[in-house]
Design a protein around this nucleic acid. Sequence first.
DNA 1: CATGAATGAGAGTTCATTCAT
DNA 2: GATGAATGAACTCTCATTCAT
Lengths: 217, 217, 217, 217
Amino acid sequence: MKSPQKPRKEPRQARSRFLVETIVEAAARVFDAHGYDGANTNEVARVAGVSVGSVYQYFPNKDALVTALHERHVRHMVRILDQVGAAAGALSLREATERLVARSLEVHRTEPRLQRLLHADLPTLEQQRALSEASRAVLDRTRQLLARHSAEIVQPDLDLATYVVLRMFEELVHAAALDPPPGVEDGALRRAISDALLGYLTLAAGPTRAASPADRP
Amino acid sequence: MKSPQKPRKEPRQARSRFLVETIVEAAARVFDAHGYDGANTNEVARVAGVSVGSVYQYFPNKDALVTALHERHVRHMVRILDQVGAAAGALSLREATERLVARSLEVHRTEPRLQRLLHADLPTLEQQRALSEASRAVLDRTRQLLARHSAEIVQPDLDLATYVVLRMFEELVHAAALDPPPGVEDGALRRAISDALLGYLTLAAGPTRAASPADRP
Amino acid sequence: MKSPQKPRKEPRQARSRFLVETIVEAAARVFDAHGYDGANTNEVARVAGVSVGSVYQYFPNKDALVTALHERHVRHMVRILDQVGAAAGALSLREATERLVARSLEVHRTEPRLQRLLHADLPTLEQQRALSEASRAVLDRTRQLLARHSAEIVQPDLDLATYVVLRMFEELVHAAALDPPPGVEDGALRRAISDALLGYLTLAAGPTRAASPADRP
Amino acid sequence: MKSPQKPRKEPRQARSRFLVETIVEAAARVFDAHGYDGANTNEVARVAGVSVGSVYQYFPNKDALVTALHERHVRHMVRILDQVGAAAGALSLREATERLVARSLEVHRTEPRLQRLLHADLPTLEQQRALSEASRAVLDRTRQLLARHSAEIVQPDLDLATYVVLRMFEELVHAAALDPPPGVEDGALRRAISDALLGYLTLAAGPTRAASPADRP
DNA sequence: CATGAATGAGAGTTCATTCAT
DNA sequence: GATGAATGAACTCTCATTCAT
């Protein structure tokens, strides 16, 4: 059955890859359930159905698991951004935004605490490294998306706008996923998030700038 | 029992109160320096200059310290909101907003990691209880402030608007304090935060489509 | 029964001191039985009848136990050296030597592996610190003892002689305690060790220097 | 089965022998660098450029590596002893001694920690077996060497003398290689070691008392 | 009430050894 | 025979919490 021409090493790598994925998924579940400190590597191994030793074969320490989780999330977000970006030509800024919000909410609702953890605990761990390398992709995609709609955007500093938009976006989606306001239906929530993002980007600073009482009788 | 000699018991209470404050301040320093899990109750005691036993006299466990820290932060924010609120009659929404952002940034820059921690780890601890009781005050104040400027605000659901504004506000201030965008000067940062808040509140959704009256019967 | 005038802190210190002694004795037994790596801190605690936490209250880490053991041994040797030194006026160098050998053999036979361990593993741990501080005392005493008998000693460099004598002494006593030559009675062993030490110290280098076959018909 | 084509099996054995040597050399490096417990079999394999499995093919466990290292060292010492022994007819005891000391110092200075380890940790591992089998050779050679110079040696029990001389020799050479006395030049150190050995062997016990003929009937 | 020594469960991590390929 | 991924027991050390003094 096993033809001799098959690359000797392939199956091993496939196995490894599968193992790594299994461990990462287990880590996702465990970290989502218990938070960073509450989670422990032995349980990750148990949930993954492997020995601790195997976890440490692929991840040098606990933090590495979080980093991997972060990368997994970033990949996920990049995929979404790329999909929406691909269709961006035919979409208005609001349409693109609402689509992103909707897709992102789905993602965050699967593992809400994990997302919060990635947002909150990861910076403490390695600040520079993981954050800059992996997140760079999200940053770049977002910036591109904004650049493509620059006609509708009033904020002059695109880098700053990207920074602000990302922070708002992540926080509002996290919040909506983790503890949504009571009695607000999903559509309204999504629209509110979009409004916030678009408000910032498209607000003509003029009228409100000089908002002295006299301006508005 | 309340005999005319109040002092009998008062000093003890005064003492207690002072002790509690000392411990909370120590906790603030320690949690800000090491994060939730990195902090340990024995060091809080040492920094406070008391014994661990005394810490546990007033705080049943580690989490209680975080809760106290949260309340302290809320009190602080309420004070700021009240001060700005008192002057709100004479201020435009933008002026009020910019003042709040500026004051808030000062606060968060003193203990940036602590603020992040309160934002991220506290929900894990007791979710409902502490959050709703203490934060209610901030929520109410913010809602009042928005209500007073309802003429300028286009968002129809005030509760939802309060929710969104608070999340944006906290996140953007945290981010600005903890890892600000490189090469952006403080004034621009403060204005960007204000723009975001005001954009959401005052943006007439019309120009970007979708939110035309026809869409919302 | 407990008179109020008793120093408040004394009992606590007495307790601590006792605890520390208990732990050190337990460590001596455990390290002697299993060697450095074979020993584990939890067993030391168990043997001492305390919790691991208490061990770590007084000893920051495993190595500190070995250091303490070393100091204990050095104190022991210093006591012996001082006793023999006190009587040194009335003793010839050989008498002093034989007395030291006899006393030292007793000590090393109680915990032979521990002595070996202190000799072998301690240098790996901190080299400088413990060795120089605690061992200095033994070095000094030995040097003094040699100086007092300088008339009988032919070695010109007293420091070097002290170094050589200490190494020989320790090694021969260790060896005699740990794996003595078979079929040699104790008196002969002790005398051999003394011979070695005295031979080095008192050997007139002359006759052997030019030890050409011609010199001895 | 032993067909005339010896080569059939020979190359495999040659390979094996080479592999074993490679592993032992790697072990030497690793144990010298990290000590017994610090060393780990996986690194030995990595340094040797083979898999752990191969290490375990030839050495049943970690201790077996140390035993092999000991035998390697013994072989080395035997070679030296034989070389000096071969020239012993033309050498005085002192000359032979000084030559041995000089050669031995070279050896120990190459892998000082390893030598210490062999001296200190090996006895703990298998005590009897390896030590007696392999060391027997060194013992015998040394005894022969002493016997050849019996005219110059005053110690009556040759076995005991061999035992004492070997211990002194090894310890002093170890010490000189691992932590030599400060400020002593190499020649003086070598002479001191030789003096110690020769003093023991050739000292007429008379002058220092006690060992007068009357004392030993 | 204050103290702080004592507790001990529990966590992260290592590494000798095995065995399916 | 060779490989090296997988195992999992075991170890060091921490720290929230208690309670005798």
